[in-house]
């Protein structure tokens, strides 16, 4: 039961409290770039969840069974980014060949994710936090879900701002960032949720 509790806490904290986009500022670029339309935001979000889970499933064993065993921990950054890049390419090729319908909807977003700092960030953070395999997978799922949630919420906000008149210098990015800051403020409300989850 305790294991289950830990997993729920990890999931909730990565989705709501330590939301990767709004609290830790990872993956801001796609968050600002692809949140203009709801369907794009959802597509990107799902693709990110998918890649995060795959990346964690591959990098965790590599770190524990290869790098740590051989004393090559310092090559972590290089190895992880290469693994992620190769994985994304591989996924794209496999999807194109075997599940063309899924490739059609996710395909455009996949290459965009290779250098998304959220993916590299989550794999490295899992190692820093010393999670075991299940915990790492849950934490990645949580981060992905948190990213999706932030994207979907923000695409709604964006659709409203884009129709409004704003003062010249604030047009475009500045007003978007300020709106994002309010969305981020809203997430502060979740701060206590993890501590009181099983109280």
């Amino acid at each position: 039961m305790d294991t289950f509790k830990t997993l729920v806490v990890i999931l909730m904290s990565s989705v709501l409290v330590n939301n990767y986009v709004l609290a830790r500022f990872l993956g801001i670029c796609p968050f600002l770039g692809v949140s203009k339309k709801l369907n794009q935001a959802v597509g990107m979000g799902i693709a990110v969840i998918f890649v995060m889970l795959m990346a964690t499933a591959v990098t965790w064993p590599i770190q524990i069974f290869v790098l740590n065993k051989l004393g090559l921990e310092y090559t972590q950054t290089i190895v992880f980014i290469l693994v992620i890049a190769a994985l994304v390419q591989f996924t794209e090729i496999v999807l194109k060949k075997f599940i063309p319908s899924l490739h059609k909807s996710l395909g455009v977003y996949l290459p965009l994710i290779t250098t998304n700092c959220a993916v590299l960030g989550v794999t490295i953070n899992n190692m820093i936090d010393g999670y075991n395999f299940t915990q790492s997978m849950v934490s990645s799922l949580g981060c992905g879900l948190g990213f999706l949630l932030a994207m979907v919420l923000f695409s709604g906000v964006r659709s409203v701002i884009d129709e409004r008149l704003v003062p010249g210098p604030f047009k475009g990015l500045p007003v978007t960032l300020i709106a994002a800051s309010f969305v981020s403020l809203a997430f502060f409300g979740f701060a206590g949720i993890v501590d009181n989850l099983f109280a």
Binding site: L22, A23, R24, F25, P169, F170, L173, P174, V175, T176, L177, I178, A180, S181, F182, S184, L185, F187, F188
Partner: peptide
């Protein structure tokens, strides 16, 4: 905190 960062960044770009 996090929201302040986004806001200051927006203001500076403006």
């Amino acid at each position: 905190k996090a929201p302040g960062g986004l806001m200051v960044y927006g203001m500076l770009i403006a």
